[in-house]
């Protein structure tokens, strides 16, 4: 185990940020912490990077305790906080140089590790970090976090506010880093990024809802899930909410995702019910649940 977390709790004044969190990350694993803003992701990251001390529980990184052995952890991990903490008034190259220097290394010494990423921003190396696009900032921040060849990489919401193209490129880079043997803990509010991790923890309100592989989590979805469409979205939702057999109903893009209280729902009866309420162009078809469906199902309890 590269990272272990056992019964960690943390409160700020009256607000509980983390409640009795436990999980472990294997060496070389790409582990995702998936949850909305305020779920406690950043607090957990700060505890693991020794920036905060937990109220209760024990956590270790590379075998070092996060409270008593914090100096050893600070020497060995790479950390990319949310909001890409860079020096906005320094150029791309100056930022990277600075972070290399404070970790007692140079860009040249570890260039092979950051090369993949850095070549993409190298054409702009004399541009100030503040003038970069979100995607380029993100790549620079990752380069800075990697420059000292850390064993463990902590990435707190690295893709928030970044356009889809850069997000995709970013995840490709993470896969390549993982192949080089790095352990990566990454957090994201985007449910669609969960599938790119080896294992994920779904987290909300400071509690872990489930930990597993993304595949296993969607396979554990307890009920058959249906895509339903009709001519009027609002009427469709309100009608389904009033239907006696409804277990859950959530708008989902151009569809409504519906689950029934019964194990084998009666599609014809449901269709009749909706028609009766004046809806037309009704389609009901079975669909595969996504991580987001699983998250909502788990969060509902």
């Amino acid at each position: 185990m590269e990272i272990t977390v056992a019964n960690i709790s943390k409160s700020y004044n009256t607000v509980t940020a983390l409640k009795d969190i436990s999980f472990g990350v294997e060496t070389g694993e790409l582990f995702g912490l998936i949850g909305p803003d305020g779920a406690g992701k950043t607090t957990l990251f700060r505890i693991l990077t020794t920036l905060l001390t937990p109220d209760n529980g024990v956590a270790t990184v590379s075998g070092f305790d996060v409270v008593t052995n914090y100096k050893a952890i600070r020497n060995s991990v790479g950390y990319m906080p949310g909001r890409f903490s860079l020096y906005q008034d320094l150029t791309v190259e100056e930022n990277l140089n600075f972070f290399a220097t404070i970790f007692g290394t140079t860009i040249d010494a570890n260039y092979d590790l950051v090369k993949d990423i850095y070549v993409q921003i190298e054409p702009f190396k004399n541009r100030r970090a503040g003038k970069l696009s979100g995607g380029m900032k993100q790549k620079l921040a990752l380069s800075c976090a990697l420059i000292h060849k850390p064993k463990v990489l902590f990435l707190d919401e690295p893709t928030t506010g970044v356009d889809p193209v850069s997000r995709k490129e970013f995840w490709d880079m993470l896969k390549r880093l993982q192949n080089k043997g790095m352990t990566i803990l990454v957090s994201t509010p985007y449910m669609d990024e969960a599938a790119l991790c080896d294992r994920i923890a779904l987290i909300q309100d400071g509690r872990i809802l489930e930990i597993n592989t993304p595949k296993a989590i969607t396979e554990h979805f307890p009920k058959p899930l249906y895509n339903i469409r009709a001519n009027n979205m609002y009427l469709l939702i309100t009608s389904l909410q009033k239907y006696q057999h409804t277990h859950s109903v959530f708008p989902f893009g151009e569809y409504v995702h519906y689950t029934d209280k019964r194990n084998t729902p009666d599609k014809t009866a449901l269709s009749q019910y909706l028609k009766h309420l004046g809806l037309t162009e009704i389609t009901i078809e079975k669909t595969k649940p996504t991580i987001e469906d699983s998250f909502m199902e788990l969060a509902k309890k």
């Binding site: 990077t49 952890i73 600070r74």
Partner: peptide
């Protein structure tokens, strides 16, 4: 945050 999580 990064300065704190560094050997400095």
């Amino acid at each position: 945050e990064i300065l704190l999580v560094s050997p400095l």
